[in-house]
Structure formats: structure tokens, C-alpha cells
Design a protein around this nucleic acid. Structure first.
Lengths: 255, 255
DNA sequence: TATCGGGCCTCACGCCGCGTGAGGGTCAAG
DNA sequence: CTTGACCCTCACGCGGCGTGAGGCCCGATA
């Protein structure tokens, strides 16, 4: 037996590597993996070296690297470790972003679940006979749906008393405007403004707004797209900052 | 005065939502968000309801959901919670895959480093008998491997005095955080921060860090993947910006 | 030897979420 | 009437192939 001629056609190599023929065509087209020869019949023929390069390609592809990056890496352009580390950093950032998305989704799902549970009851006649303490406990445990109900009530009142409401909303806008100013100027302690805000909320609710409830409201602001959108429209990053300082403020008043 | 007509053109809505006009065109084309009316001039006109729908769209988009999925979700096709949960599951799977990729990359990087570590080993011994001046000259000439030695020494100290180190690293993180802020806000002259950084480096090294050495460090930051990866993770482009301003700062202190 | 089935080849469009022009109409202000 | 800032409709491009269409090549069989 003479020396075994080790050449693979696209189909053979594709089966061995468990990829598609089209993928090999593509890698040829972009210059990532060229065949060793082209046969007289026009067939692509790959030898051992190409098969090994393909293995490397597939390895890095499995780590989510761009084909162009893989090409640069394998062709020895620049520092190999630098490329790998930079890639790792990108992946890490992506993973962080995904974790955030998942957390956001979890809050949203909880909100909707809670809200639809509330819908079964009469949303417009909450806490009639309850004591204040009972009510607040409920509010904190289930801030999401509870707050959804609050919103519904606020809207109902808005319809009922439009002229008095305008003054209230006007007051809110002033407070928000001042908060935006504080945010823009990097003011560390907007405590006075937050106290005004909390008082406004209490007035809207028609009852007190203890620190726990205020912290719950902060969470709602983060998770409810209506609020996020509204606050983000006021200033970039404001929808993130506001819940943060609200929570900090609530924490400082607790005890 | 009659009722205020609240209609937005594409540009107005796009600015408010901080998206591009093209995006609104696209959402119209695929039927995800159609304008309330088309004006006689052919302009797309959006009303309040559309603005609210857009907010929801952007909220779900931020969670990485496909536009078609968002459409189905908002148009009430099927179970809302089921869709969100399915989406969450997809994201979780993606996150798992990413974690695996990162682990694979870490092993690969460690492998490659291990292979080249042998070559660097010789460089760990030139220190002991040399004078300070000789050392610094050598440091600048061969910043890469030299700094690798510095890192090794720093690590050795980290093992020797772990509790004092925490405070040092904490200080570094603060300086880095401030530098990232400066970078993001386009601050032209972060000289004060760089002085703090240089002082920190000097303290870590246990000796002075003259401008030439600081410039050498900048070069190291550019060429050493560990640093590139770390700084790029802090902010996009930061790993390029930092060495630049470091060099500029060093140049301004030379003479 | 003609045929058949399974390779192989080269186009070339489609997917997704827009970015980025090109080429032209519309609107309010000077 | 002009200017400049809007608005409109195409239409290509990106990445990494999937998925045909239409046609040539090769070995085995009738």
C-alpha cells in the first residue's frame, strides 16, 4: 500500500466536522478556510492541514467569536492572548446584560401575575374595612399589584375631579422638575425634594406613605415601563437614578 | 382654546423616545407600530395611544425580545405570561451558554499563557543586583515582560499582606471609576485623576514612578491583554483612551 | 451504453433590525 | 423666493449561513 492520499471533498469534511457543505462554501468565499487544491472537475479538495484549521475555527466559533476575528486570530495577526481576552470581556459584558434582562423580566412577570390576580377582585373598592396596619402589610408584600391598583384608583379620581387634579399634577411636575435638576447637577442628597415627593404621593393615595411603601414604589418605577419611559424622557438616566435615591431615602427613614 | 391636538411626527416621537426615525419607519413597515393617521402631506402622525404602545415595545425590546414576539404579546395573542416565561427561558439558556463559553475561553487563555510562561521565566531574575536606575531603564526598554514581573511581584505581596491590599485595590477602583466618568463625559484634562493613579502605582511598586515609567506603563496597558480586557470591560473604548491620556500626562511632566 | 441517483458546482434570495445614504417633496421663517 | 429643517419612498448593507434553482460529474446498474 502506497501513501494514503488524504483529501476530502466538501461533503466528506462536512460530515466529519458535523457542519453543512454550505458552511464550507461560505468559509471558502470569505477566505477563512480555502481548500488545498481544486480538482480538475472543479471540486474543492481539503487536506489534513485544512481539517485541523477547521477544528480550530469551530472551536472559536463555539465561543461566539466572529469569523473575521477567528481569521485574524489563526493568521497570527496581533497578540493572540489580547484577542482572546478582549473577546472574553465582550462575552462577560453580554452575560451581564442578559442577567439584567432576566431580572427585569422576572419583575415584569411578577407584576402581571399580581395585577391579573387583583383583577378578579374589585379594584376600585380596596381596603374598605381594613385597618391601616393590615393594609400596609399587604401593600409591602405585594407592592406590584398593589401599586397597579393604586394607579387605577388615581386614574378614577382623575376622572372624577379634573380641576382639583390639575393643581396636583402641576405640583408633581414641579417636584419632578426639581428632581431632574438635582440629578443633572449631581446633587448628592435630594432629601428635601424626596420628602416633598413622598408627601405628594401620600396625598394622592389619600393616606400615609411610610418608608416601606415608598421603597416599594421605587421598585415599581423600575419595573413598570410606563414610569421608566416617562422618567427617562425627562432626562437620560433619570429613570435609573430616581428609584435609587428613593430607596436610599426610604432606608434612611426606616427604623 | 380648543382641545390640544396631541399628534407627533416621526421626528418628534423619535426624539422623545430616543430612537431613530428609521426605527419608526421600520416598525410601521412590519406593522408593529402604525401611525394614528397619515396627513394629507403623507406624514406619519402618532397620537398618545401610539406613544404608549411604543414605550411598551421599547421596554420589551430592551429585554432582548424579537419584534415579532413583541407584536404578538402586545396584540394579546395567546397567554402573556406564557410568552414572557418562554422568553425568560430562552434568555436563561443563552446566559448558560455564555457562561460555558467564558469558562472555555478562560481555560484556553490559561493554557496559552502557561505555554509562554516558560519563556518569561528568565525575566524574573534580572532584578536583584541591579541599581534602581538600571532597573528603570530596563523597565522602559522592555516594558512588556518587565511589567509581567511587576505583576508577579504584586501578586506575591498580595499573598503576603492580603488585608492591607484590599484597601489599596479599593482605592484603585475608585480612581478607575472616576477615570471612566471622565472618559464618558469627554473631560479633556483628567490630570488630577492621573496624578492620583500614578501615586497609586508608585505605592504599589514600593518606589517612585517617574514620567518615563508611567509612559511605559501606558504602553503595557495597550499591549497586555489582561489590562485591555479589564479596561474595555469598564467602558467601550476606555482601554484605548486610558493609555493615550496617560502618555500625554507623562509627556507633560517630563523635562 | 444509456440511465439513474447522489455527489459536486455556481448563483442568488432570505432572515433580523435596523443604519445609511440617494433623490425628492413639504413647511415655516426670513 | 429662498433657505434649511423636516418629511417621504426606495434600496443596499451588515453576519452567518439556510435553502433552493439549475446544471455538471461520477460510479453503479440494467
Amino acid at each position: 500500500m502506497g501513501p494514503r492520499i488524504e483529501e476530502y471533498t466538501v461533503g466528506q469534511l462536512a460530515r466529519a466536522a458535523r457542519i453543512s457543505v454550505r458552511t464550507l462554501h461560505h468559509y471558502d468565499a470569505i477566505g477563512l478556510l480555502k481548500p488545498a487544491h481544486i480538482g480538475a472537475n472543479g471540486y474543492r479538495l481539503y487536506a489534513r492541514a485544512e481539517a485541523e484549521r477547521l477544528q480550530e475555527i469551530l472551536f472559536y466559533r463555539a465561543t461566539g467569536m466572529d469569523l473575521s476575528q477567528i481569521g485574524a486570530l489563526l493568521d497570527g495577526e496581533g497578540d493572540r492572548i489580547a484577542r482572546l481576552t478582549a473577546h472574553r470581556a465582550r462575552l462577560a459584558a453580554e452575560a451581564d446584560a442578559l442577567d439584567q434582562m432576566i431580572a427585569t423580566l422576572d419583575r415584569t412577570i411578577a407584576d402581571i401575575k399580581g395585577a391579573s390576580a387583583m383583577a378578579l377582585e374589585d379594584l376600585y373598592t380596596p381596603f374598605p374595612a381594613e385597618t391601616q396596619a393590615d393594609h400596609e402589610a399587604w401593600l409591602i408584600d405585594t407592592y406590584g399589584p398593589g401599586m397597579a391598583a393604586e394607579i387605577a384608583r388615581a386614574k378614577a379620581r382623575l376622572d372624577a375631579a379634573p380641576e382639583g387634579m390639575d393643581a396636583h399634577l402641576q405640583a408633581l411636575r414641579e417636584i419632578e422638575g426639581a428632581l431632574v435638576e438635582a440629578y443633572r447637577s449631581g446633587l448628592a442628597d435630594p432629601g428635601d425634594l424626596l420628602e416633598r415627593h413622598r408627601a405628594w404621593v401620600a396625598e394622592m393615595w389619600g393616606r400615609d406613605c411610610p418608608p416601606e411603601a415608598y421603597a416599594g414604589l421605587a421598585q415599581l418605577y423600575r419595573s413598570h415601563p410606563d414610569f421608566v419611559g416617562r422618567y427617562e424622557a425627562l432626562a437620560e438616566g433619570f429613570s435609573v437614578w430616581l428609584p435609587d435615591v428613593m430607596e436610599a431615602y426610604a432606608a434612611s427613614r426606616e427604623g
